[in-house]
Simulated assay, not measured.
Amino acid sequence: CPYGKTRDNCEAECFIKVEEVFEQYGEQGCAIIVEPLLQGSAGMKIYPPLYLKKLRSLCDQYDVLLIADEIATGFGRTGKMFACDHAGITPDIMCVSKGLTGGYLPMAITITTEEVYQAFYADYKEGKAFMHSHTYSGNPLGCSAALAVQKILKEDFVLEKAKKRAGYLTEQLNSKLLDRDYVGEIRHIGLIHAIELVEDKKTKRGFSSEERVGYQIYKEALQNGLLLRPLGNVLYFNPPLIIDEEEIDEAIKRCVKSIDSYMVSRI
């Protein structure tokens, strides 16, 4: 952090950069889109809920729409139904998918506030309707799967159980891997856990991208019957919400074996 902050004392000081951009372009801008709390493909980077609160306030100030991409974070993945819930904010537009149907069928929804909806709702003759659709809109099988998943989430208390499993996963990953010389950090939100692999633990200097360390460990893990997702020097756990402690223990065991095996081979 260029401001010398840690996760324990961060007050989103870096938000000043966003304020500078809005000051310069806010009057021209119509919307800003963010992945709330978790930047997925950027390396599973996690930022504080306060950042989202400040962004919501700034968007209101400049009359800019806030679009939340909850495709990867929605439906309990971060420990709450939606990542925006951690900040207690409501976006103007929310994109959801993935967990919507539990992965059984492809489906996505773009959700808007009533104000945004009404901006495009009118009699056809007024010519302001948002005439957009695609071939598979409203697929009945996809909708049925989505409704079934939402029912199970509620009736089986899936999110409540997942929250307990998330704590256990954090505890076990930290105890098994955090003291390794090649692990710089294990960051997490909900059941999502990202292991940052480093060449120098003190400076947090990562391995050279040419080595493709994450990908090499991913291949090693496949041989051990475990599917890990590599993002550069980051390996991340993103297990199903219904995983149990026995499965967590087995996954971590295979993960540690895979990482250790590769690290020994490169000496």
Score class of each variant (00 low, 15 high):
3 Y>V: 12
5 K>V: 04
8 D>A: 15
11 E>P: 07
17 K>P: 05
18 V>K: 05
19 E>D: 13
22 F>R: 03
24 Q>P: 12
25 Y>H: 09
28 Q>S: 15
35 E>I: 00
44 M>N: 08
44 M>T: 04
60 D>I: 08
76 G>H: 08
78 T>Q: 09
83 A>K: 00
89 I>S: 04
95 C>H: 03
96 V>A: 01
103 G>M: 08
104 Y>M: 13
109 I>Y: 15
111 I>R: 02
111 I>P: 01
112 T>A: 09
114 E>P: 05
115 E>K: 02
115 E>T: 00
117 Y>E: 04
118 Q>N: 15
119 A>D: 06
130 F>I: 12
135 T>V: 12
138 G>T: 07
144 S>K: 14
147 L>D: 15
147 L>V: 12
161 K>Q: 09
162 A>Y: 08
169 L>I: 00
173 L>P: 02
181 D>L: 11
185 E>A: 10
194 A>D: 07
199 E>W: 07
202 K>I: 11
202 K>E: 14
206 G>P: 06
208 S>M: 11
211 E>H: 12
216 Q>N: 14
219 K>R: 13
219 K>Q: 11
223 Q>N: 14
224 N>E: 10
228 L>S: 02
238 N>C: 12
238 N>V: 04
239 P>C: 08
240 P>Y: 10
241 L>I: 01
244 D>G: 13
246 E>D: 15
250 E>P: 00
251 A>F: 01
252 I>A: 00
252 I>H: 04
254 R>W: 06
256 V>S: 01
256 V>L: 05
257 K>E: 07
259 I>H: 00
262 Y>V: 00
